[in-house]
Design a protein around this nucleic acid. Structure first.
Lengths: 192, 192, 192, 192
DNA sequence: AATGAATGAGATTTCATTCAT
DNA sequence: AATGAATGAAATCTCATTCAT
């Protein structure tokens, strides 16, 4: 086996960390290479362009989420499903970042890229659709108020993904539960 | 016979519109100059650099918010104050955009810039502090639940700024009210 | 009028000279900029990419040729027309170089470029078709031998473009006449 | 248990084919290695650089030609010799490609390379000289017209090498004969 | 002998900024 | 005050070549 320093997994980790630090702009191969302790051009041995890398990264993140997402039992109550969904959002907090990358990459329409983007978009759509359906169902079953704009509820749920800054791994579930609590029952103290 | 074409106010308007359209990346002097119908170099007569312009813009946005913000009557109930604060967030939805600019500008530490940034940061801090105080007070007065993490409540309130996409001007108040409703009473239907 | 050093005509001249020196590869913006005594990036103010410049150059060359080409009286004898055509080839010896550029540029299919390429190709085609027609007609009128492969005659005529290396301007006509003589009557001494 | 996969002959064949396909630019070690089914770096075991390989290739092509060339009987008539020479050009159509490589390699003056280039140049020169001598002799013996520029006749003969695109192997001789016919007797139909 | 991996040099391109008028 | 023109720094990408196994 020859000189082996790098692998795609390493690159994902560094990409993730760099993106989290500086966002899409500011995401250049120079700092990425520095993080990985390799020459800038080495990365091109693994991904033939910046877009290529980002697409692969997005795919990776999305897939991880979709895998977990499919495990949610769709036969239980809306409340229960929403609780789980929120938990997933918190656990996979990178999807928001990944989704935010889409518009930047969409520009260059190189064949292959377009195809993967299509799939990513369908995932994105699926996630949002999932929320929409849950809210609609919750309204029917009387679990969710009908006097609030649906779009607001949907957006609020979706936004909850981004409420995860700097959480410790263990506390994830509790944090997700708290978000659920807040969204469902509000912050007002109910007199008992 | 100097053509009086341009003034700082015009530049702010164009900056705001361009930033809203394309975000920080994509914000270049070429399109900005096109929007203003002047030569690219003309803008340098008013701001000595891109950072300079952005700093001034951020300052402008912040000031507008702070002005309104000071009008909030701090002697009324926490609920009332929070309602008004949310309304202000919705009305001044540009502050989030302005705040997001900070990390991009921070890079180069040119003396003057650093000073203005400091002030902007203090504003940012002040806004967040305001939320913190309200939440703390609400907890004391029993208006706000104590079984939810304070930081979550604070973040959720702060995030509400970004829930303003594509609202019509008239509907602002209703939208703000809905957000308030959601946050305070939750999305769960209460059996009456 | 502001600092004016450069114009598109200058760039064409330098492009022509550089292409003649080093061909398509070896044609880089660095030496071109040096020839023009400007910074490398300055050229981008005039042409937004290397392809862009080359396309414009090809267009320029082709147009010059087509202009002259249309002046040929198509009602005279095949011999006369061919003589004139050969003269044009010699005079516009750059078209061969321009045509040779086509395959290099064709790769990147940016919208606008494709369109201009189409036109260039139609010119190229037109030129070759012109030769084909003349040869066919000459065979009918008995001016041209029928015992030689048509394609060979066509190729030989077309190749004559490239026989122009380092001719002095004044001698062009004589040189063209000599080529015509050679092609028509051969190099063999006819015993009179 | 070393896999005996590669030898210089294989590399020549692949080089020839790749050069014919894509020309000098486009001639990279990556596609070459793919054609050979070896790793890119393996080629360096045989040639220490791209230039090295190309020089060797040119040498190879030239030698093949020179070998055949020496077989031409220099005591027969000019016409006969010229006919044979044209045939050789057609048969060894690769020399033109090889000669075209020269300017690309000349750039870097690594000692060894320069020496081989010198030799190649002498071959090139020798070929052209051969034509020159034949033409001069033909003029003396009255086989060739003296009213045409010598240089034109020489160039025309030399150019005939490139008239070989896509000929089938069997037809080579006939094609060469046709070229000879055209050059010697012209394309004009002689009234019998 | 063969090769996977890494890399540095150089080419293309973008854009904020300066300069001369 | 306004601007057309020029430019340098930095980013993306390619490829010949080297290195360690």
């Amino acid at each position: 086996m020859a000189k082996r320093k790098l692998n795609k997994e390493d690159i994902f980790v560094a990409t993730d960390s760099l993106l989290a630090d500086v966002g899409y702009e500011g995401f250049h191969f120079k700092p990425l290479a520095e993080k990985l302790n390799v020459g800038r051009s080495t990365i091109y041995e693994y991904y033939s362009s910046k877009d290529d890398l980002l697409i692969a990264y997005m795919h990776h993140i999305m897939n991880q989420f979709m895998e977990d997402h499919e495990k949610i039992d769709q036969t239980t109550s809306v409340k229960r499903q929403m609780k789980e969904l929120i938990y997933l959002f918190i656990k996979h907090d990178r999807i928001l970042m990944a989704i935010d990358l889409t518009p930047h990459v969409e520009k260059n329409g190189s064949e292959q890229v377009q195809h993967v983007l299509q799939q990513l978009w369908s995932y994105h759509h699926l996630i949002f659709q999932r929320i929409k359906n849950l809210v609609a169902e919750g309204r029917k079953t009387g679990e969710i108020r009908t006097d609030l704009p649906v779009s607001l509820i949907e957006m609020m749920l979706f936004q909850s993904i981004s409420l995860n800054k700097a959480r410790s791994q263990e506390a994830l579930e509790e944090w997700a539960a708290a978000i659920y609590e807040l969204l469902f029952n509000g912050i007002k103290k109910n007199e008992s």
